[in-house]
């Protein structure tokens, strides 16, 4: 008797899940542009993951005879002054840029969300402390602060991650504090207390998951910004160090050759940055439309 009802229940559960997945998928795929952006991100990520197999040449292999080759069938994006294949370097650079931006975003998200959640739910001196800290960080122009941190700590890849994470923590902390203040006043928060939950469980089990959608949207948008920051830092020589291939540094190198006519050195890494950042921003907007029920049906 119990057996059969449990089985029937499992069937119901599976059907419910499939139905919900279909609904979400339909909403996500309705918009062509964000579908394209999603495709671009998946492609870039796959390329980064499969870089050693995908890249036609060793990105660091120099060859004096191949220096400054134009775009050709052998070198789809040409070569640089040391004869290194630009396509291979752009593909390998995707690994570094994405990895740094992703790690920094993940770290900032975790800390920002934690601080924001605690500040928002507890209020009082805790809120004051966290928010003043956040204000202090935000009082500096973000890029100057990142520059300052990498300059002080030394410009290793890890320090670039740390610098970007620190400047991004306020974004998430503020967002989550606001969401938490809203969620805290909801009746289900009160209901969770009435039922007998401990405060930590109310915050992290009941309220936090309800604050996640705007957080995901924000993280996606901030990803684009993080990539830009990595590239910008490297552009001015404070980020990822050569000979490691990195889009920002490559653009900086290429910039010197525009006048002499070797346009491809500047163009391809630049386009790579632009496409990636644009794709993240578009998908962020699309996610906001899908995840935020208030935006539903506006278009």
């Amino acid at each position: 008797m119990r057996e059969t009802s449990a089985m029937a229940e499992a069937v119901v559960l599976r059907r419910e899940r499939a139905r919900r997945a279909r609904l979400l998928w339909r909403r996500l795929t309705k918009d062509r542009l964000s579908l394209a952006a999603g495709g671009a991100i998946v492609a870039i990520m796959l390329a980064a993951l499969a870089a050693p197999w995908l890249a036609p040449y060793d990105p660091d292999a120099t060859s004096a005879s191949d220096a400054l080759q134009r775009v050709s069938l052998r070198h789809w994006m040409g070569t640089d002054v040391y004869g290194r294949d630009l396509l291979s370097r752009v593909i390998h650079a995707a690994r570094v840029d994405l990895l740094v931006a992703l790690t920094a975003t993940a770290v900032a998200l975790t800390w920002g969300a934690f601080l924001g959640a605690v500040a928002g739910y507890r209020g009082g001196w805790m809120d004051q402390l966290v928010m003043r800290l956040v204000d202090t960080i935000m009082a500096f122009p973000a890029f100057i602060l990142t520059m300052g941190i990498t300059a002080t700590l030394g410009n290793s890849t890890l320090n670039v991650v740390v610098a970007i994470a620190i400047t991004h923590v306020p974004i998430y902390a503020r967002l989550l504090r606001g969401e938490m203040l809203k969620a805290r006043e909801m009746e289900y928060a009160e209901a969770a207390r009435t039922v007998g939950n401990r405060p930590a469980r109310i915050v992290f089990f009941h309220l936090l998951p309800n604050c996640v959608p705007p957080l995901i949207v924000q993280a996606t948008l901030a990803m684009g910004f993080a990539i830009l920051t990595v590239a910008a830092l490297s552009f001015i020589g404070l980020g990822i160090q050569p000979p490691q291939s990195e889009w920002g540094y490559m653009t900086a190198e290429g910039a010197g050759y525009i006048v002499s006519g070797e346009w491809w050195l500047f163009l391809f890494p630049g386009v790579a940055i632009m496409v990636t950042v644009l794709a993240f921003n578009l998908i962020g907007d699309a996610l906001r439309d899908v995840l935020d029920p208030r935006m539903r049906g506006v278009r």
Partner: peptide, 22 residues
Amino acid sequence: LRRLRRDLQMVFQDPNASLNPR
């Protein structure tokens, strides 16, 4: 007090807001 809450319960006004949507 938390343990005693099994004996002290409440039905809330707004059925939309008082259930955790997740």
